[in-house]
Simulated scan of single mutants.
Amino acid sequence: MGEVETWLRRLMWARGASAAGDGLWFTIWALYFTRVAGLPPVAVGIAMAAAGGVGLAAAVPLGSLADRFDARRVLAATTTLRGLAMACYPLAQGTWAFVLVTVLFAAPANGGNAARTALLTGLVADDGERVAVLARQRVAQHVGYAAGAGVGALVLALDDPTAYHAAIAANAVSFAVLTVVALRAPVPRRPTGRAASPLRDRPYLAVVGATAVLSLCWAMLSTGVPLWTSRSLPLSLSGVLVVVSSVGVALLQVPATRLATTPSRAARTAAVSGAALAAACVLLASSEVVGRPAGVVVVVLAGLLHLAGELGYVVASWRLSLALMREESRGAYQGVSEAATATVQMVGPAFFTVGLTALDAGGWLLAAAVFLAAGAAVPALTRRAERSREPSPA
């Protein structure tokens, strides 16, 4: 095993460790803020909105710093900042101190992800191998999330301030693990050539924008399905689908990379993924009218289609964002990709909440149309972007 492969494995396990901290934190944060810190829900909402806005604005500049200086150092700096902010939560007294800590913790996340991708792509030159590396990272991430969520459930069962503070300390340590491994990793290949601005690359923006719409699949599972099944189906059903999704990603994300071996195949995979997610939405829309026993079966089938759509969307978005980026500005380009996905994630819960509340089953049909249209647009947009990369004829 070569040095680079060894460090890719170490980065994968470090990502898993930080994801375990994330899973732990995301399981307990709502109750910690309200029950231990005593913060009003309005303050929590303001802090999250502010952090999200700053994070979107910071993604591309942080990615550009990874191009200009060293992706390892940018990843380490953003991770260290997030770890220190996490450690400061028990010290934050008052609403504004809490808002500041939350912004410092959440805002660098998108830029840190862009720097991590820039580091990995700087260590690996082949796009196919890059996608495989990202797939293994995602598997480690899901395993870490699951482990952290399990520990978080124990913290919630104890429901004691000491347990919450211990969980915060553990999360801060998980960030330190990733920081140390990132700093010790080999120096990635530095981009050559004049830096290009991804914000002026309209073909690239169109492709990542269309594929980012497919990331609504995550809000569909976390928001749409629980809201819908709670009306007439067992409350535990949405939890079953989350488990199916997590296990499916852990088992199938790496094999799914074979669906996106070229940009054209990735574009077709995105189109098929959009169709699969649309079909899942149609099944969910019909689940109420078929009766309770059959409705459970229909929802499970929709969950399997959702898993297929998610796996395909993820590998397609990776391949397209890597193959179509300018190599000399890979950090900035990945920052744009992260920002596009984060934007969709910000509006996703509201999209499903408002749609299902106002339109009932029609909300699922609206979501199906969005998934279908976004996926269908990717092949043509990809061909346009590829043409823009070709040298002009003499």
Rank of each mutant, 00 (worst) to 15 (best):
A153Q: 13
D160Q: 12
C281S: 13
A114M: 06
G122C: 01
W13I: 10
P391E: 12
D127A: 15
L156W: 08
C281D: 08
V296F: 04
D201I: 13
A206N: 05
A172D: 01
C217W: 08
L277V: 06
V101I: 14
A50K: 01
A140W: 04
V378F: 10
L8F: 03
V181F: 05
R10C: 10
S246R: 06
Y164N: 05
L381V: 01
L205R: 13
A71H: 08
R268M: 07
L100M: 10
A278T: 07
V74G: 02
A256G: 08
P379V: 02
A87R: 08
A57E: 04
W218P: 00
G128I: 06
G248K: 02
V124L: 10
A37F: 07
S264D: 14
T357H: 13
P186M: 02
T343F: 14
A210L: 05
M325D: 02
S232P: 00
R10M: 12
T341K: 08
Q334L: 12
L366T: 07
V347I: 13
L81G: 15
M1W: 10
V139C: 07
A49S: 13
G224L: 01
R387G: 14
A107L: 08
L56P: 05
Q137M: 15
A285K: 08
L372R: 04
A169S: 07
P255V: 10
L178K: 05
P293L: 10
A118P: 06
L237H: 06
S18Q: 13
D127S: 11
L123G: 11
T6V: 12
P263N: 01
L75D: 07
L366S: 00
A85I: 04
A361S: 13
A170T: 12
D201M: 12
L214D: 03
I28S: 11
T341E: 11
S245E: 13
V143A: 15
C88Y: 11
R136F: 07
Y204F: 15
T229K: 02
A279I: 09
V378P: 04
V177G: 09
A340L: 09
P198Q: 10
A92W: 09
G38N: 13
L158I: 00
A358S: 12
Y333C: 02
W218Q: 14
V298M: 13
